[in-house]
Amino acid sequence: MSSEDPKYQLQNSSLHSAVYVTTPNEEVAKKIAHGLVKEKLAACVSIIPKITSIYEWNNEINEDSEALLMIKTRTSKVDDLIPYVKANHPYTVCEVISVPIMKGSKDYLDWIDKIVPEK
């Protein structure tokens, strides 16, 4: 497996982002994920079920079972993605954290570009 082989080529890119969103359950996660893909705000949403979140809310330490969305998209779409998530999320304050994809498979990043149109 050579890094010179185009099949394994990495691409430097901050043009793409991974966005993380926690949801109260898989039903809400699937609803948001389907909407993001349908609206072309994301190329792919992976749902990671049954995570445990421990956090402070209203001066109390809470522990909840949640599902995590890992959303792959263009960085230019994040500003549209955030209000979509907030409008379709049951939490008063929902987690929406975007991190740039600094390197990735060129084929995969090209696929994101094909699925998610430029803003």
Results as ranks from 00 to 15, higher is better:
Glu4Phe: 08
Lys38Thr: 11
Val28Thr: 15
Pro117Ser: 11
Val85Phe: 04
Ser14Pro: 05
Thr73Ala: 10
Leu69Gly: 08
Gln9Gly: 08
Lys7Gly: 11
Ser2Glu: 07
Ile32Pro: 00
Ile82Pro: 12
Val21Gly: 02
Glu39Ile: 02
Asp110Arg: 03
Gln9Lys: 12
Asp64Gly: 08
Tyr91Lys: 09
Val99Phe: 15
Asn62Tyr: 05
Leu109Ser: 01
Asn88Lys: 14
Ser53Gly: 11
Asp110Tyr: 03
Ile47His: 11
Leu69Ile: 04
Ser65Gln: 12
Gln11Tyr: 00
Gly35Ser: 13
Thr73Asp: 10
Ala43Arg: 06
Ser2Pro: 00
Ile97Glu: 01
Asp5Ile: 00
His34Phe: 11
Pro24Phe: 01
Asn12Phe: 07
Thr73Lys: 13
Glu118Lys: 09
Ser76Val: 03
Val93His: 15
Asp79Ser: 15
Leu41Ser: 03
Asp107Val: 12
Gly104Pro: 04
Val116Thr: 08
Glu63Tyr: 07
Ile101Val: 13
Asp107Met: 15
Ile101His: 11
Glu60Tyr: 05
Val45Asp: 15
Ala67Ser: 13
Asn62Phe: 07
Ala43Leu: 01
Ser76Phe: 03
Ile101Phe: 10
Val45His: 09
Leu15Glu: 13
His34Ile: 09
Asn88Met: 14
Met102Asp: 08
Ile97Ala: 02
Ser98Met: 15
Lys77Tyr: 06
Ala67Asp: 15
Val45Arg: 05
Leu36Pro: 06
Glu66Pro: 07
Ile112Met: 01
Lys7Asn: 14
Gly104Phe: 04
Ile32Lys: 00
Val96His: 06
Asn62Cys: 12
Glu95Ile: 08
Leu10Glu: 04
Val21Asp: 02
